[in-house]
Design a protein around this nucleic acid. Sequence first.
DNA 1: TGCAATACTTGATTTAGTCAAGTATTGCAG
DNA 2: CTGCAATACTTGACTAAATCAAGTATTGCA
Lengths: 304, 304
Amino acid sequence: MDDIDLIRNFSRTYTHRLGLLSKSYLGSGLALSEARLLHDLDRPGPVRARELAQGLGLDEGQTSRILAGFARRGWIRRTRDEADSRQRPLHLTEAGRAQLEVLRLASRTAIAEATAPLGAAGLAALARVLDQASDLLRPPQPPLLRGLLPGDAGQVIARHAALYARDEGYDQSFEALVAEILAAFLTRNDTARERGWIAQSPGGRMLGSVFCMAEGPEAPQIARLRLFLIEPEARGTGLAQRMIEACLGFAAAAGYRQMRLWTHESHQAAGRLYARNGFALVASAPARAFGCEVIDQTWQRDLP
Amino acid sequence: MDDIDLIRNFSRTYTHRLGLLSKSYLGSGLALSEARLLHDLDRPGPVRARELAQGLGLDEGQTSRILAGFARRGWIRRTRDEADSRQRPLHLTEAGRAQLEVLRLASRTAIAEATAPLGAAGLAALARVLDQASDLLRPPQPPLLRGLLPGDAGQVIARHAALYARDEGYDQSFEALVAEILAAFLTRNDTARERGWIAQSPGGRMLGSVFCMAEGPEAPQIARLRLFLIEPEARGTGLAQRMIEACLGFAAAAGYRQMRLWTHESHQAAGRLYARNGFALVASAPARAFGCEVIDQTWQRDLP
DNA sequence: TGCAATACTTGATTTAGTCAAGTATTGCAG
DNA sequence: CTGCAATACTTGACTAAATCAAGTATTGCA
């Protein structure tokens, strides 16, 4: 059972369970090739018929016929290329985009039904590993660092809870703490002095988080770096460094004079990262937290 | 970009890159449905045509025709059901099995070509995440614990190196150490007193390893638990406990009086597991190893 | 005993896909 | 600027897979 057999094995399971091979695509009346073609038409600029055919490995004749059908149904507009009138650049119309949305919903429903037995947690785990696979299949692209969007806070809570429970044995009280921290952050909504970053894979799954928060009114010049988490599969890639830099840069620009953070001694890789970024260990004390014996650490550095 | 969109997105990337949709299956002259049908015929007992059709979502008429073709080419034998002569139980012949092997090789070649740009490490990573996905899609099954097979030692070395480099920052000297330990183990080949276990997912990927080795001639009654590793995604599932029990059970049966192990303080979850299994910390000392400052720990317990 | 249900098979038809030829246009060597 | 190969797409003829419906032999059961 080598790597290739594992992949073959997956293909069979996947096509079987997710029914990728379904003819007459999801009852939408469109054939699979038509659906794929329509999807590939959804690009900002004009599209060439040949590009589409080659991109999908479809026969050009067949492509031509399918496109004729789309034009008849008003899903695409075929314009005339001024410079070369052999070509007929294609544009998706509003009707075409609407049809694409119909398709998207049908496909979402089908996947939701097929994955219903997995439950929400299983679905999230599946999405996570499949998106990892997407990343591996695509030419490598660096993760995106972006601000917080709706739904991110929940993800941050869920991943903190899951990973700390697995790796450190933390109990539910840790999830509650993370939820409280985030709830307060969102409530304060102090965008000038506080910010969160989400690292996101090219496919869109969350790879990590970091937050810059105010230490509190009694220490207005101190910023706190919090909820710093990198998914295991994204560790050792330099992503953590990028995220720390984003956080430090924001804190300095927001006028803080120091940045402080709180961690546990067991996070050795994190400790090395903090040390590399000018933080120094300023306090350390054993404590009992989240059902475990831990050694709390406080690190601090000055900001430029 | 929610979970379902991530899955949709993966499906597109995957079918595009791995070309699942290839008609005329891989130049073997068989259509995709024929290949899938032939594959599903490969089961120990007799198979019913209807089962096959329903299992693959194929039309019964079409199934009948394809099966007639298989029978004509001598790939299947159609017997007569004594109790119900409407049914014609199907059996794959040797020729059919040979054809299946042709198909398997063609499919392997196709995957190997499609994944060539990823390199060996990328392929291994892809196989790993896709097999995780297979596990998630299947009804849950517990991992299998088995002895060492050819190729396992290499995997054990590779995963130790990769995970410790990622999580602890160990350098290459750690990989060398693991390789030496395993080479010596394989060379001694002392099956009565030493053994290794591999935990394997239902799909077949390695989920973890543990070894029972002799401490050495100067301490013949002491066994050492070594190379204990659980893949991150398999942590917190009780697998580690099963593996420790297997190792302890073997050591006791092999006549050892004590079991000893060596770890680092930073592996807190492992430490808790050892404590739960009767081990006590007997020595602890800071050391510099594999390019890191660590705190070596020795744990020990008596065997029944 | 008769009749619906089952386990397939066969026939008629549709349709996606293939291959090759056809049309209009472009680019470029002579 | 002429002619001819190349390009971008279309069209026609054909193949084969898939679908739908009807057909056959057999079973089970009221």
